[in-house]
Write a protein that binds this DNA or RNA. Structure first.
Length: 251
DNA sequence: CTGTGCGTC
DNA sequence: GACGCACAG
């Protein structure tokens, strides 16, 4: 049994209750992970946990609903420093001529349903330095697969970020860290039986099929110290997080 | 889709 | 810095 008393309906701002305690009330706080930094910021289209030392989010979380999928083309805006980050988000100048992309964590392609939601992804709290070949290659393939699953499974919840750990190269005056790995955790709670899948990718392009990057959520939690499904009932959480089985996800 | 670079104001 | 357009994987 799920521990939720409410499931979110389209456009509904519901209150999620777990064991009688209000967890969160906005849709994009659904399945919010824990923060290792204590600095969670909520935007309209996504939430994030900011790591000041490494000048980027340790995770960005959002729900990609089927209704979000859109083919509207928006003009690409300029990146802005996220003023909601109290310790000061990185300036986009750090990325200038660094040789690295400003890689979206919540992709612009996932927020095409409105101009404001699209533009909101161009905040510096929503980007990590990524090699262009990685960003436009295997990472892009994964992002497109997420959109495919959002359509197929009537929406998925997405948590994504770089692994901010170990020895990392930095860019710019603010020393924005370049992660050596990136991860994505997907939760489908809409097709009846809750299912989870996780990906961990080295920060380099690859032509391998995406399923070769599937790992257990546990593995990413051990790497990052983040708990990705604190709202799930413990028994279900343990079972789902230990699994590397991807047979329920259509590739 | 994912992005950068450059000339111009 | 902001804008518009060209270009690349």
């Amino acid at each position: 049994m799920y521990s939720y008393e409410y499931f979110l309906e389209e456009e509904e701002v519901a209150t999620i209750v777990k064991k009688g305690k209000i967890v969160k009330k906005d849709t994009n706080e659904y399945f919010l992970p824990t923060s290792t930094t204590g600095q969670i910021v909520h935007h309209q289209g996504y939430s994030l946990s900011y790591n000041e030392k490494h000048e980027q989010a340790e995770w960005v979380a959002y729900e990609l609903k089927k209704s979000h999928l859109s083919s509207i083309n928006h003009k690409r805006p300029y990146f802005e420093v996220d003023k909601a980050v109290k310790t000061g988000a990185a300036h986009w100048r750090n990325y200038k001529k660094s040789g690295f992309d400003r890689g979206h964590l919540c992709p612009a392609g996932d927020r095409r349903y409105s101009k404001s939601a699209h533009d909101e992804t161009f905040l510096t709290s929503n980007i990590s330095p990524q090699e262009h070949k990685f960003n436009s290659g295997v990472w892009n393939r994964l992002e497109q697969k997420v959109r495919y699953w959002a359509g197929k499974y009537n929406g998925v919840f997405v948590v994504t970020g770089g692994v901010l750990k170990g020895s990392m190269k930095t860019i710019g005056d603010e020393e924005v860290a370049v992660p050596n790995q990136f991860y994505k955790v997907l939760i489908d709670n809409n097709t009846g039986k809750t299912k989870v899948i996780a990906f961990l990718m080295p920060h380099k392009d690859s032509k391998k099929p995406l399923y070769e990057f599937v790992v257990s959520v546990d593995e990413i939690e051990k790497l990052t110290g983040i708990d990705f499904c604190p709202q799930l009932e413990d028994k279900l959480e343990n079972k789902l997080e230990a699994s590397t089985n991807y047979k329920n996800w259509s590739f």
